[in-house]
């Protein structure tokens, strides 16, 4: 088993963050859950580099994943390599390319998909 990963998940749906968190911890990784976009932005700004992977839900009320990415871009803080976009929509391929984010997880997802994607960030 590889190193323990530190994952950050930002999704307004608590059931989703709980499920993913439960799974990751069950395989020995640590997962921090946040259910608010603004809060997520602050954490990314302060501790983004501490995480191996950040799963960012795009469709959140009040402050969406798009808003988070926009703010990060404006402040030149974005590191597209450890951000994973998480979405039910089929659209963001182009949006992702525009920002440079290469990884997208689509809802609903299977454990295999989750694991395979996360493993790419494991070193």
């Amino acid at each position: 088993m590889a190193n323990k990963m530190r994952v950050l998940i930002i999704d307004d749906n608590e059931d989703v963050t709980e499920a993913i968190s439960d799974y990751l911890e069950s395989i020995g990784d640590s997962c921090t859950s946040l259910n608010d976009g603004k809060q997520g932005l602050e954490v990314i700004k302060k501790e983004g580099h501490d995480y191996d992977a950040i799963i960012l839900d795009l469709a959140m009320p009040d402050f969406s994943g798009y808003d988070v990415l926009e703010s990060l871009k404006n402040e030149m803080l974005i590191d597209p390599n450890n951000i994973i976009l998480f979405t039910a929509s089929s659209i963001p391929d182009k949006d992702a390319e525009a920002i440079g984010v290469k990884t997208i997880l689509r809802k609903p997802l299977s454990l295999e998909e989750l694991e395979a994607t996360i493993n790419r960030f494991r070193h």
Partner: peptide, 14 residues
């Protein structure tokens, strides 16, 4: 429609 499926599927698989 898709959101509720996410935790259901994950937990089922877990």
């Amino acid at each position: 429609l898709k959101t509720p499926l996410v935790p259901m599927k994950l937990y089922c698989q877990m």
